[in-house]
């Protein structure tokens, strides 16, 4: 039933719905997924009522499907998000985002003296705390905490 209700509002025939985005993270999710430059229809809502989370955000993108590695990028800001793929108004796939063990190439190391902030190279972190989100830089060996995460 809920799916039908969503479809009435968003009316996308093909595309992706990202639901259960934590309050305040909608714009960041759009930025991480490069949706700012996307030219097809996008609907998004913030501070919507959610039984499970109190307040939530939602993004509906028409004509766009995401690869698992793109989805995992948003897990760092929206660990509770659900990603729903829609084809011909039908839900064909629904998945929960998953915080990866490694974060490669899309987060900046917070340490200004880290080599990754000075050379043209790919950043590389291991996730050492999934609950509190702490990333350990493979290069400078410093930890970047949740509040210091900046996306490249």
């Amino acid at each position: 039933m809920e799916n039908k209700r969503e479809l009435k509002v968003s009316a996308i025939d093909n595309g992706t719905v990202i639901d259960h985005i934590p309050q305040g993270a909608v714009l960041r999710v759009m930025k991480i997924l490069n949706l700012e430059d996307f030219t097809d229809q996008i609907y998004f809502g913030a501070n919507l009522e959610s039984k499970k989370y109190g307040k939530k955000g939602i993004i509906k993108v028409s004509g766009r499907f995401f690869k698992p590695e793109e989805i995992n990028k948003i897990s760092l800001v929206a660990p509770t998000a659900t990603v729903i793929e829609i084809r011909n108004y039908e839900v064909v796939n629904k998945l929960q985002v998953d915080i990866p063990d490694e974060v490669v190439g899309f987060v900046k190391c917070f340490n200004p003296k880290c080599i990754t902030n000075h050379e043209k190279m790919t950043t590389y972190f291991s996730v050492i705390d999934k609950e509190d989100l702490k990333l350990h830089c493979h290069y400078c060996e410093k930890n970047t905490k949740k509040e210091n995460i900046i996306f490249i």
Binding site: K113, I115, T116, E119, H138, Y139, E141, K142
Partner: peptide, 10 residues
């Protein structure tokens, strides 16, 4: 020896 951290790993 290099002043930047992680330079040797790189």
């Amino acid at each position: 020896r290099h002043p930047l951290e992680g330079s040797a790993r790189f």
